[in-house]
Design a protein around this nucleic acid. Structure first.
Length: 248
DNA sequence: TGCCATGTTAAACT
DNA sequence: GAGTTTAACATGGC
């Protein structure tokens, strides 16, 4: 469910509810749900893996964690608890197994939109600057750093590194500058590819490394290893992904 | 059936 | 106190 592109799709799916008033609230989310009653949705926004339901004076933030899901109009998980249910005159939205929080702060004060790889304000220049401040960190950990690449998840990490032919255990400071810049720009562009594929239900078909056993370039077996401080699964080809490890 | 995983936070360790 | 590890959350596919 998560990763940034899915949040963008959710925003599109909920577009019919923009401007509509909440007529009924329910669910087991531990927030003051009734604050949303009779409030109109000002807009929906996304920041990385956060989904933001904006009301005139506050925001409900949804994070889907690992298993979160949603449905519109039909409660698809009849046997499962509804975390949050919002009823409008034009339909109903259900959220399941997600983290829900109310934000009272102005979003511009909390979020630096330029760190979100799918936001118009995305700044590859800032991302590269932040990377260069952590020269000893491994690129597999840094791509998952939501303060640098908000919205990038483990699948996108693996696919970007495969596409760039960079080994996940490469040290940031050892990667040539032009290559690093290319990784940064690909983190964003690949997220849009991911979005387009997901929209057409062909995402899995287009994955080249994540969850795969054979390198589509070299036909040699891919390595599957939990890498870096974050110990998340990495799938990579020892043959065609270069391991940059010497910081000059 | 048991294990594992597109994720994050916080508690419990050292 | 910093840094690291573990638990918790809770679903579905293999």
């Amino acid at each position: 469910m998560p990763e940034g592109p899915t949040m963008v799709l959710l925003k599109e799916a909920l577009a019919p509810f923009k401007g509509k008033k909440v007529l009924e609230v329910a669910g087991n989310a531990k927030i003051e749900k009734e604050r949303a009653l009779n409030q109109p949705i000002k807009e929906f926004r996304t920041f990385g893996k956060h989904f933001l339901i904006c009301f005139p004076s506050f925001t409900i933030r949804i994070h889907f964690l690992l298993f979160g899901s949603f449905s519109i109009d039909e409660q698809v998980r009849l046997n499962k608890a509804v975390r949050l249910k919002l009823v409008f005159d034009v339909g109903t939205v259900y959220f399941y197994t997600c983290a829900v929080k109310i934000l009272d702060e102005s979003l511009d004060d909390i979020y630096d939109w330029s760190t979100d790889v799918m936001n118009k304000a995305w700044s590859p220049r800032k991302a590269k600057q932040k990377l260069l401040q952590h020269p000893k960190e491994l690129i597999c950990d840094e791509l998952l750093d939501q303060d640098i690449f908000a919205g990038v998840g483990n699948i996108i990490k693996n696919e970007v590194l495969f596409k760039m032919r960079v080994h996940p255990e490469s040290k940031v400071g050892a990667i040539p500058s032009t290559k690093l810049a290319k990784i940064v720009s690909t983190a964003s562009s690949y997220s849009f590819d991911f979005l387009a594929w997901r929209r057409e239900f062909v995402l899995i078909k287009n994955l080249k490394a994540h969850g795969k056993k054979i390198c589509p370039r070299c036909q040699v077996p891919l390595i599957k290893k939990h890498t870096g401080k974050k110990k998340r699964r990495s799938f990579f080809c020892k043959n065609c992904q270069v391991k940059y490890s010497t910081i000059s």
